[in-house]
Nucleic acid binder design. Structure first.
Lengths: 214, 214
DNA sequence: TCTCAACTTGAGGAGGCCCTCAACTTATGG
DNA sequence: CCATAAGTTGAGGGCCTCCTCAAGTTGAGA
């Protein structure tokens, strides 16, 4: 890859990082190109689809979450580890509207191993008697989706509010708080579908989500 | 108002009701007009701005929430009342993506009296020793924002999932679940600002939210 | 029936965003 | 320095949504 091309790639990523961070994943690509001082054509050269760009921009976060998961799993206190993990993910959400959007449709990690790690974090906290036994990994989606909503609402006005939301949520997840739940947990498949279905931007807006044209 | 005009108004409201319900508040107005079999011009005649239409469509829900609040306040068991209220609002959210969007930016009621009623519901549950004392009405926004996220994600795939989310959340709100919270509650002003800030559609999408042109 | 205010219509301008591609520029190895 | 593959550019077509307004239609009272 030519040096100038690499340079432009870098500028594009940096521009995208900034714009995604404070406007969410749906900023116009043309605006990203403009901020990178590069033509829109170049952007499409480097990143044929929006998802390619998103993936490149957030690759580091995915890795970070993975590490976070490993650290959390290694924590002395299983509950502390569990809390640290969720707090860490939410912290990332709270600081970057783009990642916030992304988390909503991937539950933070997305990868096979990430999934396995999280499952172990949950299991360990349960075995320690701290996390209620009637929840599953799938229930963690509620935490992410929930905090995502609060982050969207309070991002600019009350930046710390999500911590309170999370704390309340965690109090509901403690073993001692357990009261019978009205419906069974989502299955893995259901969760995957739900995550996948969040694609075309938060609420609805018709068919705006484009496909790659073959 | 002429009879045919009234008729068209009805058709528009019905079309909007349906489309808002399964696509959210951001469906194209032209699509609403089309479904109502009425020209776009007529839509603008009756409802100069999208908000006018939204308000008309959801007027009944606002009233319903008000009644719900009154009933909840009158319940024998203060905690049951509290739960009934939140469940009722979430039920409305879960059944209509439009109302789900609306709740995110109004916390269900919006009105002065609604606010006062909710405050009493909260206070009563606290006085009964069931609702933790360190939460305030403002914290109820977390419930709405949270469930809204789950509804958006699971609306089509796992329609009942929100009940589980809500149940977990409620378990965190019980007096017995209380653990120290990391940050103070949002102030009324902050909450208002946060609600107001959710206007231009869930995540970010730039400046798409139009203003009325004076 | 006649009148006219009330109402409806839908083409079309304005503005966005997406994506492509033919023409141009430039880094790089020889 | 040259050749050329790699890369850049940005106008422009396609599609969408918003909103307006001049021209046409119609309900309802006189």
């Amino acid at each position: 890859m030519r040096k100038d091309a690499l340079h432009n790639r870098e500028r594009l990523l940096e521009a995208a990082r900034q714009l995604f961070a404070d406007r969410g994943l749906e900023v116009p690509l043309e605006e990203i190109a403009r901020r990178a001082e590069v033509s829109i054509g170049t952007l499409y050269n480097r990143f044929p689809s929006r998802d390619d760009l998103v993936e490149a921009v957030f690759a580091d976060r995915v890795a970070a979450v993975r590490e976070l998961a490993e650290r959390s799993l290694a924590a002395d206190d299983p509950w502390e580890g569990f809390v640290a993990f969720l707090t860490g993910v939410c912290e990332l959400q709270s600081v970057d509207l783009g990642y916030n959007d992304l988390a909503v449709r991937s539950m933070g990690a997305d990868t096979r191993e990430g999934d396995a790690l999280m499952r172990r974090i949950v299991a360990r906290a349960q075995e320690a008697g701290m996390l209620r036994l009637d929840v599953t990994l799938e229930d963690m989606a509620f935490v992410i989706w929930g905090v995502a909503g609060t982050v969207r609402a309070t991002f600019r006005t009350v930046p710390g509010a999500w911590r309170r939301h999370l704390a309340l949520t965690l109090d509901g997840l403690r073993a001692g708080a357990a009261h019978p739940l009205p419906v069974p947990p989502m299955t893995t498949t259901q969760t995957e579908k739900a995550l996948g279905g969040c694609d075309q931007g938060a609420s609805a807006q018709g068919t705006r989500g484009r496909q790659r044209g073959g």
